[in-house]
Design a protein around this nucleic acid. Structure first.
Lengths: 240, 240
DNA sequence: TGCATTTTTTGATTCAAATCACATAAACGC
DNA sequence: GCGTTTATGTGATTTGAATCAAAAAATGCA
């Protein structure tokens, strides 16, 4: 555990910007330069980082914790589009054109963020053209994930959607264990329902069913054990 | 109507690459250079441009006609992810990393395409760094559209999904008319169903219903007249 | 710790869309 | 233009998830 040279926060690596894949092409000296441009902010659970329609004028880089990005639908429900966690970034859309934010962003827990202003971000981009390529790669990844979500929303059964959500959590937040994979759930049942576009009750029912079939074991509302990953993959309809 | 300097095809503008927004920052001389790197290909309806799992090694730039990009789901149905038309491009994902194509691409009608090889595309990117920014903008747009689709798939009623699909077609392919907007439909009823992730019969029923309510008038299977755009916007649940 | 609040689970009922079955219409090949 | 094939429309029925209602569990707080 070291201290971040730019902000004094505790990090495993030396610099907070090192966590972000878009800067991974840079050497340590360049990272230092970027670190000097970064300001830091901390949010508590429930704090709003960004409101739909705002023009924030900066890029948000996730350092610790997780946030949800969501719309409100006409009938007042929330549709969660992304959960961003350590190493993810968002807000770059609003720097390129002059677009307003397309969604609200709210902290799901205590969150630490690096912030880069529009002007600094642009000067970094022109100084290090390779970063643009990294950003394109990241966006392509995000697009690929969206494509997969869209497929899952559009065609697959509700069982399949729930299964693939659990799998994505297992991959992103899971740690292996004797009996299976221990998964920290970033979203509540209601949150998962809002992400999947189904009813809260349906999420409960599907999870109970999976528990009865010994595919998972619920530890608490915030975590579970994935016992039979293969079965989930099968239900999810994904080939991987 | 002029001839394209690079390929002899007939185009309204001088160069086929001019149609593509990612090259819009370049001057005529630079466009000529790029044109010289481009090869052309023509496909007939039903031809497969790209197969899921392939590594094409080139970017496809749409010049004329339209194509659908889709997955096959486990139960054998197709889930359409995009319809690409004039000015759109695809395949850049596979140039950055070494990823295989995530979807099949098939011509919906006679199609003319510009093709840029991986190496040429990379040399263009390093010669003109501004193009990377343009690509980021385009990807952000695509992502924003995906986000909207995802919202529509996840939460909105089937009526809303059908309405917003019609609106997007009206915006993309519509021409104003005394009674309303004449819209050329790139997809069949089955195609729309596969895009929206609903049953073919449901699309028919919803369209009939909208016709009864004088919101649209069916001209043929391939075109319709949007009579009451405002009502569709209202049903779609979009604020715009 | 114990009480109040919030979140989750479970059951009963309703409802919208999928499916099945077939009629009708359009597109295509010759 | 005619028959074949493919696409679309419509009705009857089934089905799976939403909704409504309430109990149970988890969480927060004094």
């Amino acid at each position: 555990m070291k201290e971040c040279d730019c902000c004094g926060m505790q990090y495993k690596q030396g610099l907070c910007v090192q966590k972000v894949s878009i800067f991974s092409a840079l050497n340590y000296d360049d990272l230092i330069k970027i670190s000097e441009l970064v300001t830091h902010r901390e949010y508590q659970k429930g704090d709003v980082l960004l409101r739909e329609g705002e023009k924030p004028g900066c890029v948000f880089i996730m350092n610790e914790g997780s946030v949800k990005a969501f719309h409100y639908t006409q009938d007042g429900r929330e549709q969660i589009l992304y959960v961003f966690a350590e190493g993810d970034f968002f807000g770059e859309q609003y720097l390129m054109g002059d677009k307003a934010a397309a969604y609200h962003v709210e902290a799901l827990e205590k969150v630490k963020i690096c912030i880069l202003s529009k002007t600094d971000f642009h000067s970094i981009l022109s100084t290090f053209p390779d970063i643009a390529i990294k950003i394109i790669e990241t966006l392509d990844d995000r697009l690929a994930r969206m494509e997969q979500s869209l497929q899952s929303m559009g065609v697959r059964s509700v069982d399949a959607r729930v299964a693939s959500l659990l799998l994505s959590y297992a991959d992103a937040y899971g740690s292996p264990d004797k009996e299976g994979v221990l998964v920290r759930l970033p979203l509540s049942r209601e949150g998962m329902a809002n992400y999947l576009g189904i009813a809260r009750e349906t999420v409960s029912r599907k999870l109970s069913q999976m528990e009865n079939e010994h595919l998972i074991r619920s530890i608490s509302n915030k975590s579970m054990l994935v016992l039979d990953r293969a079965a989930l993959v099968n239900i999810s309809g994904l080939s991987k």
